[in-house]
């Protein structure tokens, strides 16, 4: 299966590096920006495509790592060309846009994998296995944290293009909360006061599930440069699981301080297995063998709706009922 990447920014590089390590048949890339494209294909020694049309002619699987606002157009055109699509999260900027992508997939008979990578982080996966196996009994309270420094200049900072922090970042843990507990009935979120001229934002969302189960999902572009912390805390009536990125990694180093912070931080430190590689390996294997994906397109759509409910509640200061 020949794979082509469209969009050569941060996530394009992450996916390209993972394909390389896996030995997947990653053949080329397209980007509207010719200089970025040239640097990218040079780094991964793949073909530059002159246009998205050329990419569609040359590959079997289209990996869309372009900015969120371009997802719908690129994914729909890929489906119309009869390609399978791997689409970086979030699915889209609005539920209607997301539904059009799902509809295009259905009409074409091709398959859509939305790359919700947190489900492939080994610790999140192991914790979910314990929950699903009933090892913790009935889960009552879930806490999930994901806070890092604000993104640098670029489209991430523009909510019209990225959906803003809840849609770009919190969606990971909102999806994970759904994976553990199913659909919530209500969302109530509080956000930090605005900071003039900055995209600093911290949001805490209280999710209410049927039968009194609950979750506190915390997300933020709020830390000083270079910091990225994540954590999970899942309490049941027979057991408890805790994990935090503050735990020491398998291999740490002490070198003179002063390395420049990356453009967008990725929580890689401390991981032996690269979750992006696990995720893409899963997607390609499911495509090759016709097996179901661990993340259904409907899950990605529901997570988007939940993220938008969080954004709406944080803006209005009122609870938002979630339609199931």
């Amino acid at each position: 299966m020949k794979i082509g990447i469209v969009g050569t920014g941060t996530m394009g590089r992450v996916h390209a590096a993972a394909y390389r390590r896996m030995g997947a048949e990653f053949v080329g890339a397209y980007d509207r920006n010719p200089e970025k494209l040239a640097a990218f294909v040079g780094a991964y020694t793949v073909d530059p495509f002159k246009s998205f049309e050329e990419l569609l002619m040359r590959v079997d699987v289209v990996d869309v790592t372009a900015p969120t606002y371009a997802h719908e157009e690129l994914a729909v055109r890929a489906f119309e060309a009869g390609k399978d699509v791997i689409l970086e999260k979030p699915l889209a900027l609005t539920p209607d846009s997301g539904r059009r992508i799902l509809e295009a997939a259905r009409e074409s008979g091709r398959r859509l994998f939305v790359a919700m990578v947190v489900r492939f982080f080994p610790q999140y996966r192991k914790a979910a296995e314990l929950v699903h196996a009933g090892e913790l009994g009935r889960v009552g309270v879930v806490r999930l944290k994901r806070v890092l420094f604000p993104p640098g200049p670029g489209w991430y900072r523009d909510p019209e293009k990225s959906g803003g922090m809840p849609v770009d970042l919190m969606i990971h843990d909102l999806d994970y909360a759904r994976w553990l507990l199913g659909d919530p009935v209500r969302v109530f979120a509080r956000k930090s006061p605005p900071v003039e001229g900055e995209v600093l934002e911290h949001v805490q969302a209280l999710l209410s599930f049927p039968d009194g189960r609950m979750a506190l999902v915390e997300g933020g572009w709020a830390y000083p440069a270079g910091y990225f912390r994540t954590a999970l805390d899942i309490a049941g009536d027979r057991g408890l699981v805790e994990w935090s990125s503050d735990q020491p990694p398998p291999l740490a180093t002490l070198f003179p301080a002063g390395e420049p912070a990356p453009e967008v931080g990725l929580p890689m430190a401390g991981l032996e297995e690269d979750p992006y590689e696990l995720e893409l390996r899963h997607a390609l294997e499911a495509l090759e063998r016709g097996k179901p994906f661990d993340v259904a397109p409907e899950d990605a759509l529901a997570a988007l709706e939940l993220a938008l409910a969080v954004r709406e509640s944080a803006a209005s200061g009122r609870p938002v009922e979630v339609a199931s």
Binding site: P122, Q123, K126, A127, L130, E135, L136, R238, G239, L240, V241, E242, W243, Q247, P248, P249, P250, L251, A252, T253, L254, F255, P256, G270, L271, E272
Partner: peptide, 26 residues
């Protein structure tokens, strides 16, 4: 520079009833 290896650092903290260990690094 110094490198610090903790080969089994990747673990969840798990408390369970009736398990082999009440508190376990899984």
């Amino acid at each position: 520079g110094t490198a610090i290896l903790d080969a089994f650092a990747g673990h969840l903290h798990v408390w369970r009833k009736g398990a082999g260990r009440d508190y376990e690094w899984l």
